[in-house]
Design a protein around this nucleic acid. Structure first.
Lengths: 202, 202
DNA sequence: AGTTTTGTTAACCAATTGGTTAAACTATAT
DNA sequence: ATATAGTTTAACCAATTGGTTAACAAAACT
């Protein structure tokens, strides 16, 4: 029988994604994942051989969908304001779709920086230098206020992703519930570019 | 003999801080920490009884120094621009001093949100609602551009802390070395408030 | 000096955990 | 029906790991 996205495999991936995102790679146990998937632990190994492979599959399955979108948003030949909007949209939509990915990335990137980054982009990084050059050009031409490109890029990425990393803090600290949070994030697709452009436009 | 910050204890804490920040609470092992401290594993338990207690001590030792500084920066009665500057400075100086704290916080806050946040602030949260009210007042008075207070607060925190979470990414992705990174962060103490104020001022 | 307290270690223990094996069950193909 | 390939399980194994014990060394105190 030709398997239609093999149900067991899918159940496992779903459970693993869930557990990994809460407990992290080290904190999660194979037994836990098996339990949540409603199967025997040995079956995990039957499908994914090892914990490392399972983690990689869960993780990169999501991330690799995003990587080309970001690369594309950065490489496109559009004016700076439009590009800022495109990049913010790419980041925020990704995070809304996969809220655990940013948490994963922060955890892993600080454990094995070089290896992880290489895996993340498959050796084919988004062209940040190009973006930096574009910013510098606008600054030099007096089209936007003077700002170091690196600082601007950091600001942009920060505002897009950080709220997802600290969601629980915002939810508790600001007393906002999950739907409100979701809404705030949706608004940010427009708000963040606006905030940036308001800051740099002359 | 009266111990002058007991040398062994200090060595352990230092080693633990180091290992925990790289591997996370779950990823780190007591043996590893003992090795790096140059002592026997049993001595770890002699001083700190359990891994959980060691982790708590390492972590909250740093964080609890910061918590009142942030609370104070938010509660002070100064005008909004000055307050933004104070808060950014508090965040960035803290992170420069303890680059691993943000990584810790993100990891733990997503595992046990309520418990962790409560521990973090000892039940005495920074008065974010006050800050939000102050922002709203300025907006209503037409002193700054319209913006949702929550969005502005998120933007501010994001730009202060996120770069420390993704340091390896910036270092590799932008090809900047560690001293340059350090310098960029120092600049951000002034750059981030400037960026924010440029964006919201009328 | 001798006794107690504190610091340190090697060896050990029990539990957890990632991973394996061999047997059983299911379904499809012949 | 029966062989075959794929799926699932219970039981097991070896390694790691957090934590303990008992003995020993070094101060500190009397």
């Amino acid at each position: 029988m030709v398997n239609k996205t093999n149900s067991t495999e899918f159940t496992i991936l779903s459970a693993a994604k869930n557990i990994f995102s809460i407990k992290g790679k080290d904190g999660a146990t194979m037994q836990e994942i098996a339990d949540q998937a409603g199967i025997n632990k040995a079956l995990l190994h039957y499908y994914f051989r090892t914990k490392d492979l399972l983690f990689e599959q869960v993780f990169f399955e999501e991330v690799k969908k995003f990587s080309p979108i970001l690369k594309n948003a950065i490489a496109q030949e559009v004016d700076l304001y439009q590009k800022i909007h495109n990049i913010c949209e790419a980041y925020i939509l990704m995070a809304l779709d996969n809220p655990f990915v940013p948490v994963f990335v922060v955890g892993e990137i600080n454990k094995q920086p070089d290896l992880f980054i290489h895996k993340l982009f498959d050796g084919d990084f988004p062209d940040f230098p190009l973006l930096a050059a574009q910013i510098k050009k606008e600054v030099d031409a007096g089209k936007i206020k003077p700002i170091q490109p690196h600082q601007l890029i950091m600001n942009m990425m920060s505002m897009c992703i950080f709220p997802f990393l600290m969601k629980p803090m915002f939810v508790v600290g600001m007393g906002i519930d999950k739907e409100v949070f979701q809404n705030l994030m949706l608004q940010r697709i427009k708000e963040v570019p606006k905030f940036i452009i308001d800051s740099i436009k002359i």
